Amino acid sequence: MGKSLLCRIKTQFTVYARLLRWINLLMILLIVLIIRYGFFLPLYMAIGLASPLSHTIYFLVVLSIVLITAAGYIVNDIYDQKIDRLNKPTRLVIGQAVSVSRGWILYVALNIFGLISGGIAALQIEQPMLLWLFVLSFGLLWYYSAYLKRKPFWGNFLVSFLSALVIITPWLFEFYALLLKPDEWIAFYRFYPHVNYIILSLSIFAFISTLIREIIKDAEDMEGDQTYECQTLPIILGWETTHRILQALIALMMILLAMAQYWLRSHHYNLAFYWYFTVQFLSIRLLTVLPADVNKNQLHRCSSLAKITMLAGILGILALIPPLFST
C-alpha cells in the first residue's frame, strides 16, 4: 500500500514537472537569481549601500515571473494537443496524464498567484504601474498560444521579447526602489550608465538567442505543424531559406558579441571579455551543426545547444563586477 502510494506520487510529480517544463523554469530562476545575487548585491556592497529592494520583494518578483511562465507552458500545451500528438507523442501530457479541465484550472490558478505576487511587489516600491509587466506577460503568453504560434515570425518574435523581459524586469524593480531613496540613488548614479548598458546588452542577447532557438524548434515540429496548416517560417519559406535566416541571425549575434567584447576590453572587464569567447565558440558550433536538410534529432540537439548558448551568455554577468567597482 505504502509503495503503491509513493509510486503514484512519484508518477504525478514527474507528469507535472514535465508539464511545467521544470528545466526551463529552473533556468529562468537561475538567471533572475544571478542578476540579483551575482550582480546587483555585490555592486551595492562595493558601493557601501544597503540593497534598496528587500529579499522578500525580490522573492515576489521572481515568484511572479516563474508562475506566469509556468502558466504559459500549460496554455501552450492545451492549445497544441492535436499537433503534439504528432510532434511529440511520447511526451504528451495534456489530454493524457492531465485532463484539459485540470490544465485550465492550474493555468488560471498560477496566473492569479503570479499576478498577486507581482502586484504586491509593485505596490511595495510604490510603483503600481510595474504590475503591467506581469499583466502584459500573462496576456501575451495566452495570445501567443491561442493565435500567434501558428503564424510566421511574430510568434517567434513575441517569445523572444518575453525572454528579454525576464532580464529587464529585475532591473526595473531595482531602479525604482533606488529612486525611493535619494541618497542611495545619488551614490549609485555614477554606475547607472554601465548597469544600463549591461542589462540592455544581455536583453538583446536573450532576444536574439531565443529567436534562433524558436525558429529551430519550428523546423523540428514541421511535420505536425504542416498537418494542421500552421504557417511557421520553415513551412512558409522552406528549410533552405530558413537555414539561411538562422545562419544570418547567428552571425548577427556573433557580431554583436564581438562589439560587446570590444566594450568590455576597453572598460577593463577582462574576465568577462575572455568568458564571451566561450559563448562565441558555442555560437560557431551552433552555426556548423545546423543540418542541411530537416533532421528532427539533429534539430533537437541544435535547440538544446541554443539554450546552452543563451545561458552561457547570461552567466557572463558574474564576471562583470570587479571592474565595475572601480569605474
Rank of each mutant, 00 (worst) to 15 (best):
A206P: 07
I208Q: 02
T210P: 01
T210A: 15
L211W: 05
R213W: 04
E214C: 08
E214T: 11
K217V: 13
K217Y: 07
K217N: 07
K217M: 07
D218G: 02
D218E: 00
D218Q: 02
A219V: 08
E220K: 14
D221A: 03
D221F: 01
G224P: 00
D225F: 02
Q226S: 13
T227A: 15
T227F: 15
Y228W: 00
C230T: 11
Q231V: 05
L233H: 00
P234Q: 03
I235K: 04
L237Y: 06
L237V: 01
G238N: 06
W239Y: 11
W239N: 01
E240S: 09
T241L: 14
T242V: 00
L246P: 05
Q247R: 14
A248V: 07
A251D: 07
M253V: 04
M254P: 12
I255A: 09
I255R: 03
I255W: 08
L257A: 13
L257Y: 06
A260T: 13
W263K: 14
W263G: 11
W263I: 10
L264D: 02
L264R: 02
N270W: 15
L271R: 13
A272M: 01
F273M: 05
W275T: 04
W275A: 01
Y276H: 13
Y276N: 08
F277V: 07
Q280L: 13
F281H: 11
S283W: 02
I284W: 14
I284R: 09
